[in-house]
Amino acid sequence: MQIRQATVKDVPEMQQLIQHYADMGLMLPRSAKSLYENLQCFVVGTSEGRIVGTAGLHILWQDLAEIRSLAVHPETQGQGLGRRIVQHLLGTAAALGIDQVLSLTYQTGFFAKLGFEVVEKHTLPHKIWKDCLYCKKYDHCDETAMVYYTQQPHAVYIGQVAEA
């Protein structure tokens, strides 16, 4: 499996994969328009010419980015692709000088294994005022906010140990 920058040709498969989990209530849906407008933020995991995973790194502020729409095809789960995609995006965030990477998730165990820590949502005002305020789940959000600190000692991304 390979991870690469998403292209416009990938959007239909990306949207289908994201919608699969949105239909189950596990993530918010993404319109084709939203994916095209934010395509530069997304990577895809491919296997045998198929999109089997995707996620985006959306910059919210000078010190905060968010991993969005992490989806791995059900047939490919358990093979490390989700971990590799997240590590790739963490490496991108670190290279950009972004200190914190956020995930609003139901998959707390997965993100905890990657070094994310649970935080209170109110500690993330740039996320709340930019996106959450307009979300249909705003009054009853049941996702857990987790943050990864790219500058922490022994931060791990792209399969390597970052310099402290």
Rank of each mutant, 00 (worst) to 15 (best):
L90T: 09
Y157S: 01
L64T: 01
M24A: 10
Q79K: 13
D23L: 10
K33E: 15
P74H: 08
T54F: 03
S47N: 14
P153W: 07
Y21M: 04
L114A: 03
R68E: 05
A95N: 09
Q15A: 15
R30T: 08
G91I: 10
M24Y: 10
L60F: 02
Q40W: 07
M14Y: 07
C135M: 04
Q5I: 05
Y148A: 03
L26V: 01
L64K: 07
T54S: 14
A145G: 00
G56N: 03
P153L: 07
R30C: 10
P153V: 01
K9Y: 10
Q87G: 11
A32W: 09
I158F: 06
M1H: 12
P12S: 06
Q62I: 15
G115I: 06
Q87K: 03
D142M: 11
Q5D: 12
G45F: 03
T123L: 00
T92H: 08
V72I: 11
G159K: 03
F42H: 09
Q100W: 14
S103L: 01
C132G: 09
G78E: 15
V11K: 05
D63G: 07
Q62N: 14
T105N: 06
W129D: 03
A95D: 15
I85D: 05
V119W: 01
S69P: 11
P74L: 08
C41N: 15
D131G: 06
T54N: 02
E120T: 08
Y157Q: 07
L133W: 05
C141D: 00
G53S: 02
G78F: 12
V161A: 05
N38W: 05
L89F: 04
R68K: 11
R68Q: 04
A6I: 09
E13T: 12
L96S: 13
R68M: 06
I158Q: 13
D99A: 13
Q2G: 11
Q16F: 12
K137D: 14
V43M: 03
L124D: 02
D139M: 04
A32H: 11
H58E: 14
A112M: 09
K113F: 00
E37H: 09
E48C: 06
L102Q: 06
C41P: 01
Q5M: 09
C141K: 05
L39R: 00
H20A: 13
Q40K: 14
E48Y: 09
T150H: 07
D142T: 10
T144V: 10
R84T: 12
F111I: 06
V161F: 13
M146N: 03
V119R: 00
Y149L: 13
Q15Y: 03
H20T: 15
G115N: 04
G78N: 13
W129N: 07
E117S: 08
W61H: 08
A145C: 02
H122F: 12
A32Y: 15
